[in-house]
Design a protein around this nucleic acid. Structure first.
Length: 247
DNA sequence: TGCCAGGAATGCG
DNA sequence: CGCATTCATGGC
C-alpha cells in the first residue's frame, strides 16, 4: 500500500493495523463510504436483499489506479489463483523488497523496463502485450490523463481506448481505482447471477432471452437498476454467486 | 484430461 | 452494429 508494507487484521469489531497510519488504512478500505446508508438504499430491491445479507460488511477498496489497472488487465479470461500468483511474480520481479517476503507493486516506469519476452515468461500469455503497452503509455504520459476528475462514462471510454481494456476491465478500474461507484462490471459470474435473479426484468427491458443478453446490456441494466451505488450491488452479487453451494 | 477462467480483439456479414 | 472465433496458459 503506497509502496510500503502494512498489516491489517479484523478482530470482531476491532481493526488492528501496524506500519501504516489510521488515515492510510481508512483510505484504502474506504471507510468513508457510508456502508449502512448504501445498504439501506440497495436493500429496497427485494431481489438483491439476500445477497446483501449474505455478504454483510464487504467493502469496495480504494486501490491505486495504476496497480488496479494492471491487476485487472492480467485477470482477463483467467482464474483467481492464477491471477494472484501472476501478480505476486510481477511484484517479486519488478517491485521493491520490503522485507518479510513482501514486495511493492512496481511503478509504471519500472514495469515498462520489462521486455515483452520477460513478461511472457511470467505466464501472462497473450496479456503480456497488453501490460507492456499500458506500462509504456502510463510511464510516458505520467498519469491517467486526469481520469479521476472525469465523469464515469468519460473515464470508462478513455480507458477502453487502451489495448486489452474492454468494458468489464474499464468498469473494474473505474470502480476500484477511480471510485466511480456507479460502475457495474459484468463478468461470467455476474452474467450468471443477473440472468438467474433478474432474467424476467432483463427480458422485458431488452426483448431478448435472458441467456442471450450481451454483457453490455447487463451492465447498462445494472447501472439503471441500482443507480449511484451499482458497484456495491455488483460486488455483493458476485460474492453471493461465487459462494453458491459452499456452506 | 479436457474444460474453464472476475474478457477483449478481430473479422465477418 | 451484433455475433463468432481466436487468443496463451494454468487451475482443477
Amino acid at each position: 500500500m503506497n509502496g510500503k508494507k502494512a498489516f491489517l487484521q479484523q478482530d470482531g469489531n476491532n481493526l488492528q493495523f501496524s506500519e501504516a497510519t489510521a488515515e492510510e488504512i481508512t483510505r484504502f478500505i474506504a471507510l468513508d463510504h457510508d456502508l449502512p446508508a448504501i445498504m439501506r438504499g440497495l436493500s429496497k430491491d427485494a431481489k438483491l436483499a439476500p445477497a446483501l445479507k449474505a455478504g454483510k460488511g464487504i467493502r469496495i477498496l480504494r486501490q491505486d489506479p495504476w496497480e488496479c489497472a494492471i491487476s485487472f488487465v492480467v485477470s482477463q479470461n483467467s482464474n483467481i489463483p492464477r491471477i494472484e500468483a501472476t501478480l505476486q511474480k510481477i511484484r517479486e520481479e519488478y517491485g521493491n523488497a520490503l522485507g518479510e517476503g513482501i514486495y511493492s507493486f512496481p511503478s509504471p516506469a519500472r514495469l515498462s523496463q520489462a521486455t515483452l519476452l520477460q513478461l511472457q515468461k511470467l505466464g501472462l500469455g497473450y496479456r503480456a502485450q497488453f501490460v507492456k503497452n499500458f506500462a509504456d503509455h502510463v510511464s510516458k504520459h505520467g498519469d491517467f490523463n486526469g481520469l479521476h476528475g472525469k465523469p464515469y462514462a468519460d473515464a470508462r471510454r478513455l480507458l477502453m481506448n487502451h489495448l486489452g481494456i474492454g468494458p468489464k476491465i474499464a468498469d473494474c478500474i473505474c470502480l476500484y481505482g477511480l471510485q466511480k461507484l456507479e460502475a457495474f462490471p459484468v463478468d461470467v459470474w455476474i452474467k450468471r447471477v443477473m440472468t438467474s435473479v433478474y432474467g424476467k426484468e432483463i427480458t422485458r427491458a431488452y426483448d431478448v432471452s435472458a441467456e442471450k443478453v450481451s454483457a453490455e446490456k447487463i451492465a447498462e441494466f445494472g447501472r439503471k437498476r441500482f443507480g449511484e451505488f451499482a458497484g456495491y450491488a455488483q460486488l455483493y452479487l458476485f460474492q453471493w454467486e461465487r459462494n453458491v453451494g459452499k456452506k
